[in-house]
């Protein structure tokens, strides 16, 4: 029962991301709801599940973006795995730590995308784009995480806490 619900959460994030949030961009950028969902789920479930969830979310995101196929799969899986190690180390009821990890995850995710996209890495415009979007994106993610993390925490606790 646990995985279907998680996949549903990922699907909802994806659909909202490419419709409502992409049609009404704030500061000209689209937020990465999938990243927030993946990090939240991985913080609550540990590294193994984090990697699985990241993989699924990443591959879905890749289908709906152009360019190098698989870039989001690799970055999301890696981040899901890394942040899953914090599962036992943070206090989940306090939202401050998850928010900080969200900042870190946003920056890391964008950096990884830049580093892995080899055919554009050498171009200056890539770094300019990175600098342009990273700050508003982080702020946007922080605000969204304020809503998404508690929701996922609630779902996780209510239905799957043994």
């Amino acid at each position: 029962m646990r995985y279907p619900v998680y996949i549903l959460l990922i699907l909802i994030s994806l659909i909202l991301q490419i419709t409502i949030f992409a049609f009404n961009p704030v500061w000209g950028i689209t937020p990465d709801l999938l990243l927030i969902t993946v990090i939240s789920l991985s913080l609550l479930n540990g590294y193994r599940q984090g990697a699985y969830i990241g993989f699924i979310a990443g591959i879905l995101q890749d289908v709906f973006s152009s360019g190098l196929f698989g870039i989001n799969t690799v970055t999301k899986m890696l981040l899901g795995y890394i942040f899953g190690f914090l599962e036992k180390k943070i206090y989940h009821r306090n939202i401050i730590t998850p928010l900080f990890t969200m900042i870190l995850a946003t920056v890391l995710n964008q950096l990884l995308v830049v580093l892995l996209t080899d055919h554009i890495m050498l171009k200056v415009e890539l770094w300019n784009h990175f600098k342009e979007i990273i700050f508003p994106l982080t702020v946007y993610h922080l605000i969204l995480a304020l809503a998404i993390y508690p929701t996922i925490y609630f779902i996780n606790n209510k239905y799957f806490e043994e």
Partner: peptide, 14 residues
């Protein structure tokens, strides 16, 4: 147009 791209690095629509 029913959907847009899922990240800030690409410009596609569905």
């Amino acid at each position: 147009v029913i959907g847009k791209s899922a990240d800030n690095w690409s410009q596609i629509v569905t």
